[in-house]
């Protein structure tokens, strides 16, 4: 099967989704990110890897946090960064995505970080660009958000290094979440034995069990003895029609409170990909509580994005030469 993410030697060429990435590549990204965490703690928070390269953030859909962390990551790698909010520029004048991309390639862009409301947008660009240009998917529709999935796994690994002994619960709007899918794939690929999803039937995709997860509709049951609670954002803006009675009702049943958290293991960590709806999917006392690792997730997100871009932009390790 032709995997557009890998080159013929099996090295990462584009990062489009976690699906289809071998364990070897996932571990390479996670291990490399480990080295980048330390860079942010130094006097000079920069390494020269991407000096002279131009990274284009193509955001066809708004996402301040993701765009900012990609921007910081590219800058810490010494790249030149251009962030385009395309929804407000040429697209509104009728230019197609690929025309926009071609124009940026003519300006010698080396890498595209793409966010789009349409599933498959990053794939489309990856298929279009010449071989020396790399594409990173920063979220496409309901489909995938691989760096978010990776940073969540990285955060879990930081706090709970033995992935083979974990019970992880993903709670909330799985149906509209591109993060949940990426995550479930990464976690199962890396050998997490038990991944649970906890959500009302209306917020679960059809045949979700096929992803290899255990399905719960009851928080009390689903949270019992888990090591990690990953809350998802209730995606109000993606919701059309009445899938839920009200947000208050949702909070009562599926919102994470201190009381419900007590059902998990005492040392369980609480995660959220942000932005949070306080009082809807998560109570403020939990979000700001001592089990919360929500802000470390943001910090680690930069290290993960640095790792992905550094692995993509380098030459192929297949052409080894000497020199010590």
């Amino acid at each position: 099967m032709n995997n557009p993410q890998l080159d013929k030697d099996g090295n990462l060429r584009h990062l489009l989704s976690i699906e289809g990435l071998p364990k070897r590549i996932l571990n390479q990204i996670l291990d490399t990110a480990e080295s980048f965490v330390g860079v942010a703690e130094r006097e000079v928070k920069k390494v020269p890897l991407l000096r002279g390269k131009t990274v284009c953030n193509l955001f066809f859909e708004n996402s301040t946090r993701t765009r900012t962390t990609f921007e910081i990551a590219a800058k810490r790698l010494s790249a030149d960064v251009i962030s385009l909010n395309v929804s407000t520029s040429s697209q509104s004048k009728g230019e197609t995505i690929l025309d926009t991309v071609d124009n940026l390639i003519a300006m010698h862009a080396d890498m595209f970080v793409v966010r789009h409301a349409q599933s498959g947008a990053a794939h489309l660009i990856a298929r279009h660009v010449p071989p020396h240009i790399h594409v990173v998917n920063a979220g496409d529709g309901r489909h995938s958000h691989p760096t978010q999935g990776l940073l969540d796994v990285f955060t879990i690994r930081k706090y709970k290094p033995d992935l083979h002994n974990l019970r992880i619960a993903i709670v909330g709007d799985v149906l509209h979440s591109r993060v949940a899918r990426s995550e479930i794939h990464a976690l199962t690929t890396l050998g997490v034995p038990e991944v649970r999803v906890i959500a009302p039937k209306t917020l679960l995709p059809a045949q979700v069990e096929k992803l290899g997860v255990h399905v719960f509709h009851d928080m009390e049951e689903g949270l019992k003895d888990v090591d990690v609670v990953m809350m998802l954002r209730l995606q109000n803006e993606r919701m059309s029609g009445a899938m839920l009675p009200s947000t208050q009702e949702y909070f009562k049943t599926y919102g994470l409170t201190q009381e419900k958290l007590k059902l998990a293991k005492p040392d369980a960590i609480v995660m959220h990909p942000g932005p949070m709806n306080r009082g809807v999917e998560i109570d403020s006392t939990v979000a700001d509580g001592k089990q919360s690792v929500i802000l470390p997730q943001v910090t680690y997100g930069i290290a993960i994005r640095m790792a992905v871009m550094a692995i993509l932009a380098g030459g192929s390790p297949a052409s080894q030469a000497g020199g010590a």
Binding site: L49, G314, P317, S319
Partner: peptide, 24 residues
Amino acid sequence: LDVSFYRDDYAQRGLKAENRPSQI
């Protein structure tokens, strides 16, 4: 020190699969 992020052959060879955090 792991000098992977400072090597001059990164453009040819890329990052090694195994690099370790520098610790100073």
